[in-house]
Design a protein around this nucleic acid. Structure first.
Lengths: 267, 267
DNA sequence: CGCTTGATTGCACGATGTTGCACGGTTATA
DNA sequence: TATAACCGTGCAACATCGTGCAATCAAGCG
């Protein structure tokens, strides 16, 4: 550094502040170029490289020749979420599917756990599946051997399925043997809960259109809290939990008349 | 780098970023052409070839003469069928998409050609897409940046979308700027035809719910015959045909007031 | 005040990565 | 078969990277 008294910090930024602004830029554009940053902050590329090295060490960016990119993990949030916990969810799905009988009509909500259930359903068992999730419908069409009914309406991108008044109205016009409402949170004392109001209304309609309700809950759902009530626990006949689910929790549900099914040890 | 024209990385993309974008393109179109990529990224074909070589070494693409394809291993037989004639259909889709304007609402029928159109739609153009095909809905959800409305009802496995009374009823309750009814057969004298009665009724409802109708027809549709009439030709404003479409046929449609759009020579 | 400590920076230099071009072989197309 | 397009390899030029090092500055302490 030259003997200049004012040069580096006057127009420039503090190191930490600089890194923060690099991150902002990165999130905005998806990429940063080292040479551009050096010019922007009026520092040498060496300093920029040091910053990028540090950010990469924290997993906040991926260093590439010439600059840095957003880490691959944040690029495909939707598809990646679909793969998360797949081993555990498959164990849950296998147990849930054992409750299904030949020729039944199923009402299946959107969600990754329910997609795992759809993938585990027995083929050519004369099953009719009603779903609000295009992903699940497509999955069953690809597998062939299912009767598929689609619930229409606006597709909520965060949920991956239709909810809202139109969807609710259509669900009211069907009748199913079993329904699988995706659980946001379930509690032995207060029943089934959802994060979103519209979503909760739709789940409630699903339950009312079905003879029996199966709630499939990963461990985290058993302790979660949510804002909107979907249904009392008395409307839930079956609860499928992971092998690792707490024993006290399981018996709490069983004591209230819910048939608790525990998945096999999932890998 | 010799006396190169300008700084190569300044205006262009980072090498790794370029490979990522090549992959995106590949997954979207199923194929990439080396010469096109070179022009797009403003680098020599040599660099593109190096990129493709590297991606192929990771098993992410399959190199072919002139470019690269998606590796066959990643495609299920059904998805593979979806890619059939993809080059021709993508050329059609690119032309069809040029008729779409920012902020419009589109009504898109099921079918592989229409799936290609959905894949080619510009992102973040404020488009609302109403479709009866779960595959198309899912595709747009994955791409993000679209408002998606689903038409409910029984899903016909042969068609890959909902048809029938319930679907028709829902279409009647929406309004679109443009609709893309999958064509089974189109004839300058007699209009648009469908193979199946229910399917034809649904397509007719689509057309009636839209201001303008765009028929996208591969060559074989221009000579096909079908049983059930969908609509008179006067209801069709635009016809998109392949580059190879017969000239006399094209002028026959043009003479009846249909705007005929000819796709670019598709490889 | 003088000194030390730690953090940050710029620079030098060797190592590695990337690019375009030239050249010769291979492949598709008419 | 002839032609043009495409491919792979080697090469030289250039860009970027990592490391070690010295200079600078702020802060703490005797």
């Amino acid at each position: 550094m030259a003997k200049a008294t004012t040069a580096p910090l006057q127009s420039g930024a503090l190191p930490e502040e600089r890194q923060q602004r690099i991150l902002d830029r990165l999130r905005g554009d998806g990429r940063v170029v080292a040479a551009e940053l050096a010019q922007l902050f009026e520092v040498s590329e060496d300093s920029i490289r040091r910053d990028l090295r540090e950010l990469a060490a924290q997993g906040l960016c991926k260093r590439v020749y010439g600059g840095a990119l957003l880490p691959a993990a944040t690029l495909t949030p939707l598809k990646q979420r679909r793969m998360e916990h797949s081993a555990r969810k498959q164990a849950l799905a296998r147990k849930a599917v054992s409750l299904v009988q030949t020729g039944q009509t199923l009402l299946i909500d959107a969600g990754t756990t329910n997609a795992a259930i759809a993938a585990a359903l027995p083929r050519d068992a004369g099953l009719t599946v009603i779903t609000n999730a295009p992903h699940i419908a497509q999955l069953l069409l690809d597998r062939e051997g299912f009767e598929v009914l689609l619930i229409g309406g606006r597709v909520d991108p965060a949920i991956g399925g239709t909810i809202g008044a139109q969807a609710v109205e259509q669900v009211r016009r069907v009748r199913a043997d079993l329904c699988f409402p995706g659980a946001c949170a379930i509690d032995a004392a207060h029943g089934l809960w959802g994060f979103d109001g519209e979503e909760a209304l739709f789940k409630r309609a699903m339950i009312e259109a079905s003879d029996e309700t199966v709630v499939v809950a990963t461990d985290d759902k058993l302790e979660a809290v949510a804002l909107h009530q979907v249904a009392e626990l008395s409307r839930v006949q079956h609860l499928v939990v992971e092998h690792s689910a707490d024993r006290a929790t399981r018996s709490a549900f069983a004591a209230r008349g819910v048939a608790v099914h525990r998945a096999e040890a999932g890998q």
